[in-house]
């Protein structure tokens, strides 16, 4: 198991330690919530948590690639909105055939990511600016073409909605939500890509030092563009699944702030905004932690629901602080050993 995990996480420094640290934090939140409200551990709630983690996790995995290449993608929430609102709007309101719409929903975000990548590598624009403009544009476009109207499937398309709301029965008293299977497939592919292929190695290398990577003969531009394609593409998939799950999407606020949840999860999971480090498993556990925290506020601290964001912010901050302190302790130890 451990060797399998390390294959997925790769031989990156401190990667496993980080994952272990955040996993312990997740378990602590689990234990505390379960003690306060035993229903927390019920299969219904656990299935809900798994489904939410899976949906947000897809976003997190996507943005992790961009963060690893020392970029940032602020447009994710708006891509979620574009796809989440656009799909029911095209299918229900405009009557387009479902396969065509699904194709657009998965293809268009990839094109968006490709454009982001081109602007960032060829025109040398800063990722923050490019994707910030994306954040504004895609939501604005969505509001424009729908006339700000809520879009939803109503009682139709039950078959397609299975991908978001369906469950695969297991004999262990816990059914596996379909999105979890989708995330699992994505995570394994992403893990293999990042740690077992040369392109993953290229991304890690250029995230650490783009110039040196270029001097080693790596086509860094192509890798950066690829990272943005992955990020936007997965955001599109997540947007599709979100709307299939929630069943109605409002152009004004669908997917609002989701880019920040995704970035927070990636950072919690060990991606450094300085680039070059990050593990897929860490990102997924980071996402789970965020979702469990939100659930915890409802399950155990109902009176403090308003403080939810404060709690999430505090947990992320303490996680990052703890990590930094641990790193310093290691560095001190190393320095001490060197002196001997």
């Amino acid at each position: 198991m451990i060797s399998f995990l390390s294959k997925l996480t790769g031989p990156q420094n401190d990667g496993m330690k980080r994952i272990l640290g955040i996993f312990v934090l997740l378990m602590m939140v689990y234990v505390v919530t379960a003690i306060i409200n035993p229903n927390f551990l019920g299969s219904y709630n656990q299935e809900n948590l798994i489904r939410r983690t899976s949906l947000f996790g897809i976003l997190g995995v996507g943005v992790a690639f961009v963060i690893i290449t020392r970029g940032i993608d602020l447009s994710l929430g708006s891509v979620v909105c574009l796809v989440g609102v656009g799909v029911p709007w095209l299918i229900i309101d405009q009557g387009w055939p479902v396969p065509v719409v699904i194709l657009i929903a998965l293809g268009l975000p990839a094109v968006i990511g490709f454009c982001h990548g081109l602007l960032i590598t060829k025109l040398k624009l800063q990722p923050f600016i490019v994707t910030l403009c994306g954040l504004l544009m895609y939501r604005g476009i969505t509001r424009g073409f729908t006339g700000d109207q809520t879009a939803g499937f109503g009682t139709e398309l039950k078959g397609l909605r299975w991908f978001a709301t369906g469950e695969i029965p297991l004999r262990i008293g816990l059914d596996i939500p379909v999105p979890a299977v989708i995330l699992m497939i994505i995570a394994i592919l992403a893990g293999i890509f990042l740690n077992r292929t040369i392109y993953g190695r290229y991304m890690l290398a250029l995230g650490n030092n783009e110039e040196a990577a270029k001097f080693s003969g790596i086509n860094t531009d192509r890798m950066i563009i690829l990272a943005y394609v992955i990020s936007s593409g997965l955001a599109g998939l997540a947007g599709l699944l979100f709307v299939l799950d929630v069943n109605l999407a409002q152009p004004v606020d669908f997917g609002n702030f989701y880019e920040l949840y995704a970035i927070a999860a990636a950072v919690l999971g060990g991606c450094s905004l300085r680039g070059g480090t990050g593990t897929i498993l860490g990102v997924i556990i980071g996402t789970a932690l965020l979702q469990v925290l939100r659930n915890m506020m409802n399950m155990a601290f109902l009176g403090f629901q308003r403080a939810e964001f404060a709690v999430i912010g505090a947990v992320i901050l303490s996680g990052v602080i703890a990590d930094e302190l641990a790193k310093r302790a290691v560095a001190r130890k190393r320095a001490a050993q060197k002196q001997k």
Partner: peptide
């Protein structure tokens, strides 16, 4: 800045050009 990726291992650096 240009010759090495300091944060990566000896092995990863040595392999980078011939991957």
């Amino acid at each position: 800045q240009q010759g090495l990726i300091l944060e990566m291992t000896v092995r990863e650096n040595l392999g980078l050009a011939s991957l």
